[in-house]
Write a protein that binds this DNA or RNA. Structure first.
Lengths: 181, 181
DNA sequence: AGTCCCATGTAATCCGTTACATGATTTA
DNA sequence: TAAATCATGTAACGGATTACATGGGACT
């Protein structure tokens, strides 16, 4: 495999409890899980076909209530095994998380360049915006303790995303301060 | 372009001040910059050829002191322009940083499963190890204030990496505590 | 003598993005 | 009635990994 192919298990994880359409899966990547993984819909449909071929899911096409034709995908026993296998597998290597802005910073040696401050400010805005968005979601989804218990995994990754953004913001603020001097 | 191709500008950035061999560049990815980008040597050599074709670098093959044949790459004016152009370009979208472990967590719903604690502990060890490694490097490279001034960008990304690892560790510790209860 | 590092490449494969494509339904 | 969203795909291209390949130097 060219890149470590996680999409199949992610898709299996997303339909573990309820059958979903390809479009539903696409939506999942736009909200919750999108914080930690991204894909285009074109790839989702391709992967679903591969999962069928592998016997990890089954499909069911038809009209369900509304008038639009949909295809629902359901996990098989085979698929459950594959998912479970991945869930509790160890991988002793951390992934590199690629960050274009950090790279830019690394190559900008002239601290006094006014464009550097602009770049830092722009990035600060972006991360503040993201943080606000994440906090809004936490508020909406996990205001009650009960909700946290019910969806602990989801809560954890949201919490992590928020902490990460806070770290990023603190870091940039520190950099801006040091530059000003 | 299929994926946002940053490798060319990264390579240009790495040879901006000093000529380097493909192997030198490979080494750069194993140390400093490897925290925020990764590539295989096979891709480096391919990209260097493309950069030559584009007129962004020139190459110089021969024996330099030792008896091993090396090829040194040097940035051209064209390459400098391209690099400078990228450095101060804005991109108003943050990259998703993919994290396999976070995904796993998201899909593990049973908080009482002993394997979950094992996974968390394993991850904790990994990040502690990485943190120790990063701190050791900061100690080695930036113990004097002068060093920070001279390589501010490098210092910043190291600092960021360390903060990020600390965040990760705190987060996992929090999760473990909540699970124990 | 063998292992590790230096040093450079090619080939096959596949993941992931972009672009192309279509048609129905809902909402302003 | 126009725009946005729902819903599902195919095709082209290129970026990234893995595997294959070679040869010399340094160190134990």
């Amino acid at each position: 495999m060219a890149q470590k192919n996680l999409l199949p298990v992610i898709l299996l994880g997303l339909i573990e409890d309820t059958t979903k359409t390809g479009y539903d899966l696409k939506k999942d990547f736009e909200t919750e899980i999108g914080e930690f993984w991204s894909v285009k819909h074109s790839q989702i449909y391709l992967e679903l076909k591969r999962l069928i071929a592998a016997g990890d899911i089954t499909s069911n096409t038809g009209y369900f209530g509304n008038k639009i034709e949909k295809t629902y995908y359901e996990i098989t026993e085979n698929g459950r095994k594959r998912l479970e296998n991945w869930k509790y597998s160890y991988d002793e290597q951390l992934m590199v998380n690629k960050d274009e802005f950090v790279l830019k910073l690394y190559f900008i040696k002239d601290k006094s360049d006014p464009r550097l401050r602009e770049l830092l400010n722009e990035q600060l805005q972006l991360h503040r915006k993201k943080l606000a968005h994440l906090e809004e979601r936490r508020e909406r989804l996990f205001s009650a303790k009960d909700d946290i218990e019910k969806n602990y995994g989801h809560f954890l990754i949201l919490d992590h995303a928020i902490r990460r953004e806070n770290e990023y913001i603190d870091w940039i603020n520190g950099a801006i301060e040091q530059i000003v001097q």
